[in-house]
Amino acid sequence: MTSAPARIILICSGKGGVGKTTLTANLGIALARLGERTVVLDADFGLRNLDLLLGLENRIVYTAQEVLAETCRLEQALVKHKQEPNLSLLPAGNPRMLEWLTPEDMQRIVGMVAERADYVLIDCPAGIEEGFKNAAAASREAIVITTPEVSAVRDADRVIGLLNTRGVSPVQLVLNRVRPRMMASQEMLSVEDVTDILALPLVGLVVEDEQVIVSTNRGEPLTLVDNGSPAARAYQNIARRLRGEDVPLEDPSKARKGLRARLMNRIRRTTGLF
């Protein structure tokens, strides 16, 4: 194949539960639907969940560890998504396995995968220990995802520092679980607050959306079903921005432009009501 080298993107956050795996699954599907050959790699083999979000939990037979041990071929370990064949999942390992992968193992397996993909998305484990170091060792660029909460932003800052010292670049930011009303009444860190503090370019804003839970229950990422929910659109826009498309970012806490809306925002800011 004579295409450009694959983009190898780490998806990380430091703190757990901020939406790494959901972003990986949705971004993977969105990129695949745009025609990119995409592989999502679950680097968290102790507590793997990417298979569950993609609805592929019953189809995993082999993992990266068998590929590295040469007990199976890479094609056997890659689980192709039924509805979206441009997307494959590769779990790093089996939860029962005791020995850890090394950074070199991770680089080898990602190198193999990258030969047959346009995008490799690595779903990083929470924390900044071995799992993070392994995943970061194999990545060229990164997306840090955080929520507008003090603990998530603090942990994201630690991770950004570590990525900078490792020379991972570019590092871009996704702000997840944005609540426009709370932001408008200044009862939540604003979009500017977070981008000021972390000093990263913003590649996506995802509003809090109940549809994310529904889609997780079904194992069908939002970007797959295309129901036009706000989060689905946000994930699709991130995919388009990654490919270099100029998709404007709109701060949802300032989105309503009418006179009445502006007045309401004003009242909200001064009183904190509504």
Binding site: D157, E187, M188, I197
Partner: peptide, 19 residues
Amino acid sequence: KPSGTRAKERLQLVLAHDR
């Protein structure tokens, strides 16, 4: 102050130490 403002101030302080 609104809690968002407090959050930013507290974060800036703690991050200065962390960094």
